[in-house]
Design a protein around this nucleic acid. Structure first.
Lengths: 230, 230
DNA sequence: TAGATTGTTAATCGATTAACAATC
DNA sequence: TAGATTGTTAATCGATTAACAATC
């Protein structure tokens, strides 16, 4: 089970299933079928069952899945049962939003430091944390054992920040800056690019508009993280 | 060329190529080979050439690609040569960040209105636009012909906002709220989920940590939008 | 036992990649 | 002509899906 390599497309969907299960749990639902969960997550039920089969056999034939049990198993598989200290660099509007984002601080992730190169921002308190100097990066990483870094700086600063992060031992980076980072192998980078997302929507909008005359069978819901590739 | 359907994975990478080409153009580079562009974009050169071949034959054998010409062709294919009015709903920290994001306002996209349901925020000016009431949605969409809506509200409000957007004719939605939206077919939704991204990183971090004893051949750079699935 | 739903099989589809003929 | 690099072919790989046997 855990020994088997889980397909990348499946890994990208596990957080979606987890979110749907959390909503069910909050609503007091204790059991669900693959069809119900798949519908809530916006995927095909065969795909859901195939995905879950990579984790193990956590359902009951004829019955379905126990919501809280499956929630726990997925959390465990992703690694959310342990604590992930995170450092955020670049505390502009986006950095503020990230620092305050509850999904960030809850459930496994803990923002341990907010860093900014701009001296005038340092000392300001955001989401209960004082903004510190970017020079404190190494201290913070060492002290808290940070493995994940979040970059929310302007594009020009991002590569430098990433290089420094890698130099002090960070091997997973979430990059919000609109730049493609060049980093050594073994470092995992995920890029969240607002402008790319808009462009992809625009491409489909354009097609819809030009297909408006002829009847068309087009575009349905697209989950952004479902199906990330390496 | 434009008549052929472009694979979804290719569409998701076009914005990445465009970004790399823009950087080259700004740096004064006039020509590049598929290998150079692929390296800058963080992909395999065979994949780049295959992707570009879906658009047409815009390179010169033995020479490479003219940076500005290719830039124009990709822009045209995506639809960036036309103007895309966008409305942003939910002007918290994230909404502020989006409103100020230059990649949003430049190159084809134009934020025409910022809406917020919170009356106390209305009238405030952000990025040169006055925050208006959410009730103005229909007026804004009609007046400017908005086809793309951005949701940056808290999770609880997102479904309602999306329903209203669809009701007034918006068919493309970029959702930053941590919820899975249920929407009719024909409406295109892309979800940007910070917590999913962190979870995917955590999964790989966990694997790296457990593989730390045995030598491992693992994880390299992952471009988030490269390979979106429907 | 009858009904329901999982977990798995196998077929299909789409995406990636190396290799190379075409051609500047 | 010789060297370089595109655009395309074909093989491979991975992901999706329907269908159904297993089993609660």
């Amino acid at each position: 089970m855990s020994a088997t390599r889980i397909p990348e497309a499946t890994v990208a969907r596990l957080p979606v299933y987890l979110r749907a299960l959390n909503a069910m749990s909050e609503a007091g639902t204790t059991t669900c079928s693959s069809l119900e969960l798949a519908t809530a997550a916006g995927v095909n039920s065969a795909k859901l069952r195939k995905d879950l089969s990579h984790l193990g056999s956590y359902g009951t034939r004829g019955v379905g899945y126990d919501v809280d049990y499956l929630r726990y198993q997925i959390s465990r598989e992703i690694g959310l049962t342990q604590d992930w200290p995170v450092v955020v660099v670049g505390i502009g509007n986006l950095g503020h939003a990230l620092a305050n984002y509850s999904g960030f601080s809850s459930r496994g992730f803990r923002t341990v430091a907010l860093l900014d190169a701009d001296g005038s921002r340092q000392g300001e308190v955001v989401a209960g944390l004082e903004i510190r100097s970017f020079d404190d990066l190494e201290d913070v990483v060492t002290e808290h054992g940070v493995g994940i870094g979040v970059i929310a700086t302007p594009a020009v600063a991002a590569q430098d920040v990433a290089d420094r992060m890698v130099a002090v031992g960070i091997r997973s980076i979430l990059n919000f800056a609109p730049t493609i980072l060049a980093l050594p192998e073994g470092v995992d980078v995920r890029r969240v690019d607002l402008s790319s997302e808009l462009q992809i929507l625009a491409y489909h909008e354009q097609r819809k508009a030009s297909a408006a005359s002829a009847p068309a069978i087009v575009v349905e819901q697209v989950a952004r993280t479902a199906g990330g590739a390496r």
